[in-house]
């Protein structure tokens, strides 16, 4: 038996060496399959399907490659000679694939950092829209007007990302101007009632309505409302119109910008009229 194991197949390679190679490769295949299944199970709800396939393949073939490199010396193939050539090739490939690798690494960091998910409404470096896909190399966005935009992950990673629905709720704000002659407290009461009647204008965090500014043409009320992130835009557009209707029904007007212009002659007449009126009041 021992003689059989020591029997040379070719050169110095014996049957034992061949068995070691076969056993190592078989073990590597088993390990690679286990890793692939584990990856699928653990990442299937986190990573998009196409990216998951990439991860699986990378892990599977990576493990096999390591195993093959490890067993090659066992059958008399030494890779030391290839190292110099491989090094030069590596440098060339490194330069050529710099952007690809950069995008890949950025993609991996995006998966870890998770600043956005598929379906999120975002603004990435000035590109606004809905995230339709996040792959290892790029992120795809459908802009508000339906245009497909592909952003390399490196750009996504280095850009300022504004995710409009990352938090559970978000706030929006209006400025509502009313005439100086209108009752601001009543206007506030009416606006609060309209907000209270809207299902998605949240009770908590509570809405705010207050006089914020005595403007040139109007008393400006600020209205701040919190709504669930997934429906905030509909609530914003719906509420604004309801507020406008409600305050107008109550006889409160939203004034147009106004300017009082005095002409020179009219101004003199006007001044005289004012003076005579004052004298009249004084007597």
């Amino acid at each position: 038996m021992i003689d059989l194991l020591g029997f040379p197949v070719w050169g110095n390679v014996t049957v034992k060496d061949l068995l070691v190679v076969i056993f190592t490769l078989a073990l590597a295949v088993i390990i690679a399959r286990v890793v692939r299944v584990s990856l699928r199970r653990s990442l299937k709800n986190i990573v998009p399907a196409n990216t998951l396939v990439l991860f699986e393949k990378a892990a599977y073939y990576g493990i096999l490659a390591i195993a093959i490199i490890a067993v090659l010396p066992q059958i008399g193939i030494h890779l030391t000679g290839l190292l110099v050539a491989g090094g030069i090739l590596g440098i060339m490939l490194g330069f050529a694939s710099q952007t690809v690798v950069s995008n890949l690494i950025s993609g991996v960091f995006l998966f870890i950092d998770k600043p956005l998910n598929i379906g999120d409404q975002v603004d990435i470096g000035g590109v606004s829209g809905v995230v339709t896909d996040i792959s290892v190399f790029s992120t795809r966005i459908r802009t508000w007007d339906g245009i497909y935009v592909r952003l390399p992950n490196e750009k996504v990673f280095n850009s300022n990302i504004r995710n409009f629905i990352y938090n559970t709720v978000r706030r929006f704000e209006y400025t509502v101007g009313i005439r100086y002659s209108d009752d601001a407290e009543r206007a506030i009461e009416i606006i609060k009632k309209v907000i209270d009647e809207h299902p998605f204008a949240l009770v908590n965090p509570s809405p705010q309505v207050f006089v914020n500014e005595l403007g040139e043409n109007s008393v400006n009320l600020t209205v701040r409302v919190w709504a669930p992130s997934q429906v905030w835009f509909g609530v914003k557009t719906d509420l604004l119109w309801k507020i406008k209707q409600a305050i107008e029904e109550a006889g409160i007007e939203i004034p147009f910008p106004q300017r009082v212009i005095w002409f020179a002659n009219e101004s003199k007449k006007g001044d005289q009229n004012i003076l005579s009126e004052r004298e009249g009041h004084g007597s």
Binding site: N167, T168, V169, P199, N204
Partner: peptide, 19 residues
């Protein structure tokens, strides 16, 4: 009945609830 919703918890991680 008039539906109304609220947030339970913080803005970042809270849960939307029927109020």
């Amino acid at each position: 009945e008039q539906a109304k919703y609220t947030l339970y918890g913080p803005i970042e991680k809270g849960v939307i609830c029927r109020h």
